[in-house]
């Protein structure tokens, strides 16, 4: 796979980097003000989706916020994963969920990097040894360890991955301004970048490197430069995700529960819609009903 050697090299280099960074976590430097509710940024030419009342560059929220979701992302997928992606879109065109089945139908977490989309505002809590990114909406919370630890050797698969970071004071003013983060798997999956099912590799071995910092000119704009190293890509894919700070210094955090509002029913890998009367309905044309062989009167 195209990125495999690169991923290995990054792992080795990053391990060394983390060892060097140990002393920096306890030097008494001040931390940046990342308090508040961080909302998904959208470009000036964003369009309003009347269906859900949100602005995006096109479609639903995307990984690269400057481009429309799905094909519009122009993700550097390998031919094999471009085919998987096109199959996902084709399935969705027929009423299915494609590669987004688990998240859309079963309310499973999207994990990295979908959890950086900020469907609901992110809260970032900076402490000396760990920075927490609280995502809500059944996505796991991110713990970015900045205590100088090394990579554990017994990692089990997770949706969020395991994140180690280090603070940088790049302008040497005594205040940290950049949080560098590396996130490794093994991940749980399958995962997708957005709701079209734009896929990450099913080997779940992605690596993410991020630089998170406030915009120098706009302190209420947070950048998260993410580079994805994934074996479904022909090259590393970098985007500059942005978040805007809610101007309310004491924002009201809203609750969002996928399960509570979920009208979809998953039976095996088939999805059905449950209407307000509790009746099961098909989601695509000519969809067969569930297998009723064990319901004797109805199986004939």
């Amino acid at each position: 796979m195209p990125c495999r050697k690169l991923i290995y090299a990054i792992r080795v280099a990053s391990a060394l980097l983390m060892i060097v960074s140990v002393a920096e976590a306890a030097d008494g430097a001040k931390y940046p003000d990342w308090d508040g509710a961080w909302e998904r940024w959208f470009p000036a030419n964003a369009v309003l989706d009347p269906g859900n009342g949100i602005y995006t560059a096109g479609g639903q929220p995307s990984f690269d916020q400057t481009k429309p979701w799905g094909r519009g992302q122009k993700a550097p997928l390998t031919p094999e994963y471009q085919k998987i992606f096109e199959d996902s879109i084709a399935d969705q065109a027929k009423g299915g969920e494609g590669n987004f089945f688990d998240h859309a139908i079963r309310c499973m977490p999207g994990g990295m990097p979908l959890m950086t989309i900020a469907f609901t505002p992110l809260e970032i809590v900076v402490t000396a040894k760990t920075t927490y990114v609280l995502t809500g909406n059944v996505e796991p919370n991110r713990r970015i360890y900045t205590d100088g630890r090394d990579w554990p050797t017994d990692l089990t698969p997770t949706y969020a991955g395991y994140s180690i970071g280090r603070w940088l004071d790049e302008d040497d003013d005594g205040v940290y301004d950049v949080l560098e983060v590396e996130t490794r798997g093994p991940f749980k999956g399958p995962r997708a970048y957005d709701a079209t099912g734009l896929p990450l590799h099913f080997d779940n071995q992605s690596i993410f490197k991020e630089r998170i910092y406030l915009d120098k000119a706009h302190p209420n704009l947070l950048h998260d430069e993410i580079t994805v190293f994934d074996n479904a890509l022909t090259r590393p894919w970098t985007v500059d995700k942005k978040y805007t700070r809610n101007p309310n210094p004491r924002p009201r955090w809203t609750e969002s529960s996928c399960i509570e509002t979920n009208s979809m029913v998953a039976i095996g890998r088939e999805s059905y819609f449950m209407n307000a009367d509790g009746m099961l309905m098909p989601v695509r044309k000519n969809q067969p009903p569930p297998d009723l062989r064990y319901f004797k009167e109805w199986a004939k």
Binding site: D35, E123, V125, T127, L134, G136, V138, P140, R250, W253
Partner: peptide
């Protein structure tokens, strides 16, 4: 419990739930 000057955030494992206390 994540204590900050103006709030305390309580994190629970159940579906990564959390509460924010002003």
């Amino acid at each position: 419990l994540l204590q900050q000057p103006d709030k305390v955030t309580l994190i629970y494992p159940h579906d990564s739930d959390f509460r924010v206390v002003r």
